[in-house]
Design a protein around this nucleic acid. Structure first.
Length: 274
DNA sequence: CACGAGACCTGTTCGC
DNA sequence: TGCGAACAGGTCTCGT
């Protein structure tokens, strides 16, 4: 489910509540159940239970696709991977069959980490560095300038799509937002990063920010059975539009595999540089 | 260094 | 209708 805009949407729901979910700021943890042991990446299950009890949720941040729950003593980091979700509901409401971790809160609500595919992970840590240290550019930050992006791009000779999906280069993009950004920037997904002109890099930089901001504005994308809430899927330019007309030139959108991921692009608007 | 394959998992949809 | 194959928003590790 989640790339940067979906994670940001979940963050907002946890901070302010909405869509049937409760806010969790200033609540404290009174109990905890781990229903799928592998969900807790760090520390050990025993230590996780003893350390998280009694902690207050002070603030919620995001870095790339990670949610950061700042508690009074530790940080609880959450990565939703493919099918995770994190929300707070009254304890009286039925539990999802895919609940993997439950934090009982002091107002008889509970924070539920749900994840059908069991890929998601949480870390309870003193310092963020160990988990987040290798992440690359934060794409909507002020420090992420077109110039620094261009310098980064030309320092590698890599296919642009796999490079954009590398979280140590840029954090938060996934399959949807990469395909959308590359179409907006009129770049073929196999373009080599060091073949880009500064002009093209600037256009890609702008496209990434436009697409992410629109995704956030629309509360993310809802696809399949996994995640629902946002409506960015109604504004896709290429993602899962194989065979449909390009919105710019009417050429049928093509689907290829790049880096073992489904990749959608317009063969007319996004020609491969030679 | 850059890339591809396989693994981790479950659930839905597609094709015959 | 039924059943196996293909596919899904992510990331890690290993081999070449």
């Amino acid at each position: 489910m989640p790339e940067l805009p979906e994670v940001e949407t979940i963050r907002n729901l946890l901070r302010r509540g909405g869509a049937g979910a409760l806010p969790i700021l200033n609540r404290f943890v009174v109990g905890c159940s781990v229903l799928w042991a592998k969900t807790v990446a760090e520390p050990s299950l025993d230590e996780f239970h003893t350390r998280i009890a009694g902690q207050v949720i002070k603030e919620i941040d995001r870095r790339g696709k990670y949610l950061i729950l700042n508690m009074d003593k530790d940080h609880l980091l959450v990565h939703l991977r493919m099918s995770g979700d994190l929300y707070c509901k009254p304890s009286s409401e039925a539990l999802s069959p895919h609940a993997r971790l439950i934090l009982d809160l002091d107002d008889t609500s509970r924070l539920i980490f749900e994840d059908a595919r069991k890929f998601g992970r949480v870390w309870l840590v003193k310092e963020l560095e160990g988990v987040l240290g290798k992440l690359g550019f934060e794409p909507l930050s002020a420090e992420f300038t077109d110039r620094i992006f261009y310098e980064g791009l030309i320092s590698f000779s890599r296919q642009i799509k796999p490079l954009l999906s590398d979280q140590t280069f840029i954090a938060g993009l996934g399959n949807i937002y990469i395909d959308e950004s590359l179409h907006l920037a009129k770049l073929h997904p196999l373009t080599l990063s060091n073949q880009l002109s500064s002009k093209q890099a600037e256009k890609l930089w702008r496209s990434i920010r436009i697409v992410l901001e629109e995704g956030i504005k629309r509360n993310g994308a809802s696809i399949d059975w996994v995640y629902k809430g946002g409506d960015f899927q109604n504004y896709f330019r290429v993602y899962r539009r194989t065979g449909l007309a390009c919105l710019e030139c009417s050429t049928p959108i093509e689907r290829i595999i790049v880096g073992q991921r489904s990749t959608h692009f317009c063969p007319n608007c996004q020609k491969l540089l030679v």
